[in-house]
């Protein structure tokens, strides 16, 4: 369960990115977040793994108030949340498999099991056999898929993706949307920010439209 309770977020300079957000997301739900550029989609998503802290209000995950967590406690919350950011943030000096391995190492998985999981994740995103290549040699869509593999390799119960299909041609885009659909079918709570809701129609997700930091409509 993810709960936003009267959450506002002001960035330095006084800009109000989120303004009184109230929201409850049940486990296993699939939510698609849309809205104009600058509406606050990225900001809302970043509050969940505590990449950003709310200026006021409370963000709760499974009963835990992440907006007031100590610096020491935050890493353990993040390990249960898979995140794909707008910028893929891959490590370009590491091989594809090392990139995907990183969250498993951080989580302290033994090397053997971690290796098997990385192979399975690569298979899942259609990059099997390319583990030794480096991100720089991949297309934008392929890099996006590596970032997605890195987000779910740890089997998080919550998966967050910020415009994972931006800048992709339609074929790639629907393929990636399909990946998130299948994670959700496996029971993962999925939140996706996107400009293209139609990609996710097939899974009839809950739709939330943001406008200037407020929830405009919900269906």
């Amino acid at each position: 369960m993810i709960i936003f309770d009267s959450v506002t977020k002001n960035y330095p300079g006084g800009y109000v990115a989120l303004d009184g957000i109230n929201l409850e997301i049940a486990p296993g739900e699939m939510v698609v977040l849309s809205g104009h550029s600058g509406a606050g989609k990225s900001t809302l998503l970043k509050l969940i793994p505590a990449f950003e802290r709310p200026s006021s209000g409370i963000v709760q995950i499974n009963g835990q108030n992440v907006s007031s967590l100590s610096r020491r406690a935050i890493p353990y919350v993040r390990r249960n949340i898979g995140v794909v950011l707008q910028e893929t943030r891959l490590l370009f000096d590491r091989s594809i498999s090392d990139n995907i391995l990183l969250p498993l190492v951080i989580n302290g998985h033994p090397p053997g099991e971690a290796g098997r999981r990385v192979s399975a994740a690569l298979e899942r995103v259609g990059l099997a056999g390319r583990e030794k290549e480096f991100p720089a040699g991949l297309s934008g869509g392929e890099q996006q898929r590596v970032a997605i593999a890195r987000a779910f390799v740890n089997r998080p119960s919550i998966l967050i993706a910020d415009e994972p299909t931006a800048h992709l041609d339609p074929a790639y885009a629907s393929e990636i949307a399909g990946l998130f659909g299948s994670f959700n079918e496996a029971g993962v709570t999925v939140l996706v920010a996107t400009h293209d809701i139609s990609l996710f129609r097939y899974w009839s997700p809950r739709q939330i439209i943001l406008d200037h930091g407020r929830i405009l409509t919900e269906q």
């Binding site: 890493p75 993040r78 943030r89 990183l102 951080i106």
Partner: peptide, 16 residues
Amino acid sequence: KNEIEVSRLLGATDRF
């Protein structure tokens, strides 16, 4: 720097 930031986003502790 980049690697440190990414590791933090992925839930790495300061010790790690």
